[in-house]
């Protein structure tokens, strides 16, 4: 479907671009701006010599991509997943293991990891999408905890708690090993661009409208012929695959993975929080949220020393404030009208 066609289930608040020549002119201008911004961002590594600052940019891009990917299912479809770390872990462990066991390039390994995450998403999705609300959230937590327990248990494969280190064996681009941080800057930025492109395309597609219809009222959407399970599955598969790619970038950038850093409930929550604080269901929101959290972590670490906890406490506080004050423009996730208490949905 092209952007000009009228969607079957347009959401009035989503602000469709007006049709006609004016629209295409606007789209072209927006495309030019985006290209200019991208070119400017690509120049950053040339005047950044500090490896640490460059790594901060990589972290920001990585979290932005993860938050955008989460938003596909968490924001647009309104399915509050608190288990996305599981997909991240699949994307981190798969290429590392394939490289260490069979010398497979992590470029191929990352794609295989994303494929694995997508396949797992189909399996787990067909289970958890039968649930709604708090039961859905709890089921996604359980799923991620199962993945974490498996990673901890199969020590002969994953080294359990000790994790897997990727020793640096010289500049080998095909193995994603670089002396400089600059290539990871480009890779992570590329991941953001890909995720943004998938999201932007999804927003304009039939599935995008279906997702928002499901978010607003699943029963009404179903009654209009939307097969909510299939639509949500499509979103989850895309979200899982992109999240897994994030895991691959993380693994080879950091050079070390373990179940706590890749498959923990804390990571799942952090990903969700970034999208939510920034504003779900928008292109800019998850990026802004990721920037805020990365900056906040830096500032608190600088101000309060390396003692952990302060940044976690602050983003918890920030999340509570976001939920309670419900600023306009943020998060359709919780601004939709609610039924009366007695009518709220429990398990499917």
């Amino acid at each position: 479907m092209t952007p000009g066609e009228s969607p079957p289930l347009a959401h009035p608040a989503e602000g469709l671009a007006p049709a006609g020549p004016r629209a295409s002119r606007m789209a072209r201008r927006r495309g030019l701006w985006a290209a200019a911004a991208l070119a400017a961002l690509l120049l950053v590594p040339f005047w950044l010599s500090d490896r640490y600052v460059m790594h901060l940019w990589v972290t920001f891009y990585l979290f932005a991509a993860l938050a955008l990917a989460w938003d596909l299912i968490g924001g647009y479809a309104g399915q509050l997943s608190l288990g996305h770390a599981a997909f991240f872990a699949l994307g981190a462990y798969t290429p590392v293991l394939l490289l260490q066991r069979w010398g497979l390039s992590p470029i191929a390994g990352g794609v295989l990891g994303a494929a694995l995450a997508a396949a797992v998403a189909v399996g787990i999705g067909s289970i958890v999408f039968r649930l709604r609300g708090v039961f859905f959230a709890m089921a996604t937590i359980a799923f991620a905890e199962i993945v974490r327990a498996l990673l901890l248990h199969f020590r002969s494969l994953t080294q359990g708690d000790n994790g897997l280190a990727i020793p640096f064996t010289g500049e080998r681009p095909l193995d994603l090993m670089f002396r400089s941080e600059a290539p990871f800057y480009v890779i992570a930025l590329g991941l953001v661009v890909v995720t943004l492109a998938v999201t932007a395309r999804m927003r304009r597609s039939r599935i995008g409208y279906y997702l928002r219809a499901i978010r607003d009222d699943q029963d009404a959407a179903e009654s209009l012929g939307v097969v909510s399970r299939d639509v949500k599955l499509a979103a989850l598969v895309a979200s899982a695959a992109l999240t897994a790619l994030g895991g691959t970038v993380y693994a080879f950038d950091i050079g070390f993975i373990n179940p706590d850093s890749t498959a923990s409930l804390g990571l799942s929550i952090e990903i969700a929080i970034m999208a939510i604080i920034g504003g779900v269901g928008t292109l800019a929101g998850p990026i802004v949220g990721a920037g805020m959290i990365v900056a906040l972590t830096q500032i608190t670490n600088a101000a309060l020393g390396s003692r952990g906890g302060a940044s976690t406490a602050l983003y918890g506080l920030l999340l509570m404030v976001t939920v309670l004050l419900r600023p306009a423009g943020l998060a359709a996730l919780w601004s939709r009208p609610t039924g009366r208490r007695g009518e709220r949905r429990g398990a499917a």
Partner: peptide, 11 residues
């Protein structure tokens, strides 16, 4: 919504 309640207590 369930989501608002979950997110508040998660926060």
């Amino acid at each position: 919504t369930d989501e608002a309640q979950i997110l508040l207590t998660v926060g």
